[in-house]
Write a protein that binds this DNA or RNA. Sequence first.
DNA 1: AAGATAATGTAACGTACATTACAGTTCTTC
DNA 2: GAAGAACTGTAATGTACGTTACATTATCTT
Lengths: 221, 221
Amino acid sequence: MKETGVAEVEQSAKMAARRQAMLDAAAAVIFEVGYERASLAAIVRRSGGSLSTLYQLFGSKEGLFEAMIVERCAYIMEELSSPDLSARGARAVLLAIGHAFMRVLLTPDAQALWRMVMAEGIKFPRLPQIFFSCGPDRLHAKLAEYLRGLDQAGSARVPDPLFTAKSFCMLVHGDLYYRVVTGVRPQPEPAELAAHIERAIDMFCLMIQLAPLADKGAGDR
Amino acid sequence: MKETGVAEVEQSAKMAARRQAMLDAAAAVIFEVGYERASLAAIVRRSGGSLSTLYQLFGSKEGLFEAMIVERCAYIMEELSSPDLSARGARAVLLAIGHAFMRVLLTPDAQALWRMVMAEGIKFPRLPQIFFSCGPDRLHAKLAEYLRGLDQAGSARVPDPLFTAKSFCMLVHGDLYYRVVTGVRPQPEPAELAAHIERAIDMFCLMIQLAPLADKGAGDR
DNA sequence: AAGATAATGTAACGTACATTACAGTTCTTC
DNA sequence: GAAGAACTGTAATGTACGTTACATTATCTT
């Protein structure tokens, strides 16, 4: 009994590797030149295998694209979904989260993914759905939970934790991210990046009225 | 003596209108389907005139694209470069700026421009340069000037006015803008938009430690 | 190891489109 | 009002690429 559904093919041991190689090649090529400008021939040239197997595995260029995005979203955003809350003191925790956040966002792959989502979201609605649910939504939820803890401990005032979590992300990546991602300015040096994040965190701490006491490790859960 | 430089042609009275019509048509088509998918034939069909004159005026598809973006940037962002500071009280002024900001950003044209800048910025470096200098840079400067006034009047604490101005914009458009611009959620209803902006302004006022007094009209210049 | 099945490489097909060439039409100028 | 310039419409050219077809080679089953 063999169902030859378009996208579900029984994976021989070697075919899985081919599939992965093709996804990697697709990511590399599409992230570099964009969806329209990326040619399947170039992808196959890079992945090995053949055009025929590409069509067998993914059905079409769009199919390959979606599969690649799904796989890449999960991979790239993984680090964001479990922020490190181990630091001493609320401000230090927020700083650590900010640094991890920016480290991921400034990755070439994450920048390319961001461009894809912005550019092709209208034509491929599944793309931003996947992106937001894998990335921002999960980070916002985790962060909101942490902020609610601070509020309940009395060391900060966070009446709307989810909105505040979103605002945190906005402040941290800031205008800087737009300029890097569009190429209008170069990647920041570590020192500049650290200064940027610290200013953003300072502002955020004012915003949630973080008690200076909580800075010494009182406000954690 | 007739210099036939590629892009500089002496404009007969009628040619200027043709040129404008072609820029408008290019904006409409490219904003709808993206640069790669937009065909010159479709643009000419919409603008009237002929493919020949298009090539005579702009030299190439890229030339038309750049000319269109330059013209559109200035037009779309015009409202942003002179924010309305006439309201009574600092918080009311900030609210007015926030509303004007979002009104412009949520325009279909502004959204499309944003997508273009994000998507094609890497391939056309002039594009984000023009965008930022026409739009964000000018708004940030004006806003920073206003915030510096508040600081000097003692009604708020703004040690780094430019950074604070940027943070203002980030808080106001927030995560909401990303989701609308990628199509992952619909345009907000006026009531929801107003609530969003007010929450953002509330947070911002905490951030700059705006004196409640300034809410009654004391802090203006 | 022979036959069945799957994977590969290559070439062909059709289309879409940027760009150019050219012939026809309108406008300007003396 | 005719000669010349500027503008327009259409057709032709060349290329790039998504997709399909097919013949060849490798892999697996018994």
